[in-house]
Computed example of a mutant assay.
Amino acid sequence: MRVYLPCTLPALAQAVKAGELGPAPLTGYAVTPALTEWYASGDTEELEYVALTEAARASLRMLAADRADGVETAFRRVVVAAEVPERAVSAGVDLEERARVRLADPIPLAKVAAVHIDDHEAISDIEAAVAALPAADEGDDDARFTVDGAEAHELMWYATQEIPDLLGS
């Protein structure tokens, strides 16, 4: 089963060093039965895009947490796509996040299929979205527009052998 795991560049560097994404439990996003039922007209590719988008939103929140903690990072959303056995994934029942899943164990880097990351051109919009998150969460429509604007940027796809290059950029 393909699972999309929200990440940041510092967390990806830490995963490379450790040889796995963790610690567990991990929150990821996947094509769940609830997502399939809700998005009845979509094919598998469309449903995977929904899961990827949900993971990118979670990555934005991870960037906000890093910023609050004083962690130095480039404002680029990162999503790690991994292939994991279905038995390792438990789907939630959250109607707001139908694609959200839990993984009880760390994910070995050998299970990573690809990394999706914002292009450098998106950095200023992602930084603005991170700054706008608190106001957006309180219902500010202008802030919500700024946060939603981050999704106008498509994440770039990178093969696993390109991860060292991503961490150097």
Rank of each mutant, 00 (worst) to 15 (best):
R144T: 13
A150M: 00
V50P: 01
G19T: 04
W157L: 14
E46F: 12
A104P: 10
A128T: 06
E54L: 07
I123Y: 06
A135Y: 09
E48M: 04
L95C: 12
A11T: 07
P106L: 03
D142F: 08
L109R: 03
D118R: 07
R67H: 12
K17Q: 15
A34E: 10
E151G: 09
A131G: 06
T146Y: 03
P164E: 08
H120D: 15
G168I: 02
V79S: 09
A18P: 03
A99S: 14
G92A: 10
A150T: 04
V112N: 00
P33A: 05
E54M: 08
R76L: 04
L35M: 02
Q161T: 13
R67M: 11
T53N: 12
P106C: 08
P33Y: 03
A159L: 07
L167Y: 02
Y158F: 15
T36F: 11
A132F: 01
T44G: 13
L60R: 01
Q161R: 14
T44W: 12
V130M: 02
L63W: 00
G22D: 08
D141S: 13
R77W: 04
V50H: 11
A51Q: 00
V93E: 15
L155H: 04
E46Q: 15
D148E: 15
V84S: 07
E54S: 13
L60T: 04
P10T: 07
A18S: 11
T53W: 00
A104W: 10
G139H: 08
L12P: 01
L12T: 08
L166W: 03
P33S: 09
E154Y: 09
E46L: 13
A68W: 06
R102E: 14
E162D: 12
E121I: 12
A68P: 01
A143S: 01
A74S: 15
R2T: 09
V101Y: 05
G70I: 03
M62C: 05
A24N: 02
D43M: 05
Y49P: 09
K17P: 00
E37H: 12
V50R: 11
L155M: 09
W38L: 14
V16Q: 14
D119K: 08
L21N: 08
A40P: 03
V89F: 09
A13C: 06
K17R: 13
I117H: 00
C7D: 08
V16G: 11
R100D: 02
L26N: 04
S59T: 06
G70W: 02
E72W: 05
P23Y: 04
D148H: 14
A104I: 11
A40R: 13
A13R: 03
Y39K: 13
A143T: 07
A91C: 10
L166E: 08
T36N: 01
A104G: 14
A55W: 00
D140P: 11
D118S: 05
G42P: 08
A64G: 05
T32S: 05
V84T: 06
A30F: 09
Y4W: 07
D142P: 04
G168E: 13
E83P: 03
Y4A: 07
V89I: 10
M62T: 12
H116P: 01
L52D: 04
A110W: 06
W157Y: 13
V101N: 06
H116G: 03
L103A: 01
